[in-house]
Simulated scan of single mutants.
Amino acid sequence: MDFTDEQLERYSRHLVLKEVGGAGQVALLNARVLVIGAGGLGAPLLMYLAAAGVGTIGIIDDDHVELSNLQRQIIHRTQDIGVRKTASAAKRINNLNSDVKLELHPTRLTPENAEDLIGSFDIIADGCDNFETRHLVNDACVKLGKTLVSAALGPYEGQIATFKPHANSDYPCYRCFLPHTPGEDEQRTCADTGILGAVAGVVGSLQALEILKEILGIGESLAGKIMLFDALAMTSRIIGLPKDISCRTCGSGEGTP
């Protein structure tokens, strides 16, 4: 692939990295990443993927921008209140990098459409805010052999993990980590607990970094591990995630439904 003069300047800081270079930038431009959720995690994630030159980005979100979103969802602006989040995010991305092709899905992910929406992408980035959707995404990714980079937020903390059991039989899937969907009384969102806005920026940026590493094949993957970030202590740690051999999604299927 021959870069245009504009691309040579835009991606110059990538091109001088020996781990990226021209071949890596081509890989980024050819990559297809689906982002589920254009909220607290999706906002910084989408901006960094677009800035890096990820060639095709899909966005799934059926929500509209609200004033309370703007404290952390930095891809949206005050004038976007009432606009679909997919449209608001697309406007900001188009202003950032015209190299990026967008595939917008202003809908909710369901068992009926999950495989069709996920199937055409290389890497899936889960930034949703409920366990039911996380399990749905995981199960579709395992079935289709897609790499899933998942992140979640708390008031002052976050977590990131990569799930790709198709790449190594010892790697777990998300359901190995959390087999069951918690009951409604156990599920709490940022509307219930609150969140320090910049925490979403840190964790969403780390999720973007992990996705870029997966596309480029550089560094050490978080597959088989989970990274835990504590903003108040300003610490992070990585712990191993074992595979559940009886997992009903990626194992023997003997786990409890």
Rank of each mutant, 00 (worst) to 15 (best):
244 D>T: 15
155 P>K: 14
80 D>W: 01
18 K>A: 08
81 I>F: 00
249 T>Y: 12
140 A>T: 14
179 P>C: 05
237 R>A: 07
235 T>Q: 04
29 L>Q: 13
228 L>G: 00
105 H>L: 08
114 A>W: 01
19 E>V: 13
68 S>G: 13
212 L>P: 09
130 N>M: 09
257 P>F: 02
163 F>P: 00
130 N>Y: 08
234 M>C: 06
181 T>P: 11
142 V>D: 13
204 G>S: 06
97 N>M: 04
206 L>H: 00
184 E>C: 08
228 L>S: 02
196 L>E: 00
121 F>P: 00
183 G>S: 08
160 I>Y: 05
205 S>G: 03
253 G>L: 09
162 T>N: 03
133 T>N: 10
48 Y>V: 01
89 A>S: 11
45 L>V: 09
63 D>K: 09
245 I>T: 14
60 I>W: 01
137 V>T: 11
232 L>N: 14
10 R>I: 01
5 D>W: 12
186 E>G: 00
125 A>G: 07
234 M>W: 02
91 K>R: 14
22 G>C: 14
50 A>N: 07
254 E>Q: 06
64 H>F: 05
4 T>G: 09
36 I>P: 10
35 V>W: 04
250 C>L: 07
15 L>H: 08
153 L>N: 12
169 S>M: 06
114 A>L: 00
25 Q>H: 12
30 N>Q: 05
257 P>W: 05
207 Q>G: 15
251 G>C: 01
24 G>H: 05
151 A>C: 09
241 L>Y: 10
2 D>C: 12
30 N>E: 06
180 H>S: 03
188 R>C: 11
44 P>I: 00
142 V>K: 12
75 I>T: 12
211 I>A: 02
186 E>H: 04
27 A>G: 05
